[in-house]
Write a protein that binds this DNA or RNA. Structure first.
Lengths: 181, 181
DNA sequence: TCCGACATGTAACTGGTTACATGATTTG
DNA sequence: CAAATCATGTAACCAGTTACATGTCGGA
């Protein structure tokens, strides 16, 4: 699919930035739905430059340290808009090691199934709390500013997903306990 | 993580089978949480054999067609049990091209955001219906048979996940419509 | 007799992670 | 002055997909 290039173009469509700043964006603001390490970003920036979708100028930090400040070109903006307006098929079910484990766990004592399930529940409950904290940054809910608004929608998506996961795990735990009796 | 080997060992822990049958299992029964193509399965079976975790005997179908019927060895069963009893960390957020698109869509007209969202909603509603049909195969709910029971838990997981996704998308659509006014 | 399913393998490529490699700048 | 952060790159490896390659078997 080559989605990384669109993630980069999307960032540059908002602000000019260096590869280093992109890697920070991927591990912070975008981390809930896309990530990339610098070892993947720098080569991709090379490709995007080669294809004329981005360009850069060299800026100096301090005395000698050179950094490349990238910006999106007209043809880059065009390509990004094309992608933005494409309807995408929902992906196949994600691989899930825990679910695989649960599937095979029928050969284990129910007691053990319960420990697997409650461990997962604790982890997802913790994550849910973390995501809920992200809502604090908004002064009004839902935010009116367009960028904040879509940011808000994604946080809501994360919350609903974690809630559903926790509810499912609680249901599994309840059913397992019933069987134990 | 090398999860594929445990998926294979788990299958062989239940029944002896050929690589071909495994590839059918991955595209049918396991597809909701793990998949593998035959091009990945056959080399992995070679590795597992080399490591002494599985073995095979050659059986003949028809007159000459040879097939390798694999079975799990004692040391394979040991390794599988070790994995089964390991608590796993929940994975980082999955990459999600739609969410990436939604995040950047703040620069698009709200009308367009709505078309993106309702397209996704339609697809997830369809998938939800398909998963719900899977419940028909059980004669009692929840099933008492251990293997059917864990199968049932996973189907419930799929249903709750799709429901949450649909609810989130509906919430997004409602909020976008409010903003349009 | 033809077609779809059975059956097994390899090669090339893509996306991504981890590790290697280097050096400047800022802050405590 | 040391440590954390800024800044950019490459190499080796791993998991997974697509395509290449071959041949048998059973049923319509």
């Amino acid at each position: 699919m080559g989605t990384l290039r669109y993630a980069i173009l999307g960032l540059l469509n908002r602000n000019n930035m260096t590869g280093y700043e992109m890697s920070k964006a991927f591990e912070q603001t975008l981390s809930a739905f896309w990530t990339a390490k610098h070892s993947q970003i720098y080569p991709e920036l090379k490709n995007l430059t080669r294809d004329g979708l981005v360009k850069y100028h060299v800026a100096i930090t301090g005395n000698v340290l050179e950094k490349k400040v990238y910006s999106i070109t007209d043809s880059g903006r065009e390509e990004f808009n094309r992608w933005e307006q494409t309807l995408t098929e929902i992906p196949p079910f994600p691989k899930d090691e825990f679910r695989l484990q649960l599937y095979f766990s029928s050969d284990q004592p129910p007691q053990f199934q319960l420990s697997l399930l409650s461990d997962q529940l604790a982890q997802h409950e913790k994550r849910l709390l973390q995501i809920q904290k992200d809502l604090d940054k908004f002064s009004s809910i839902p935010p009116e500013n367009p960028a904040d608004f879509s940011d808000y929608l994604l946080i809501r998506g994360g919350i609903l997903r974690e809630e559903a996961t926790c509810n499912w795990l609680r249901e599994c735990i309840a059913l397992c306990k019933k069987r134990q009796v």
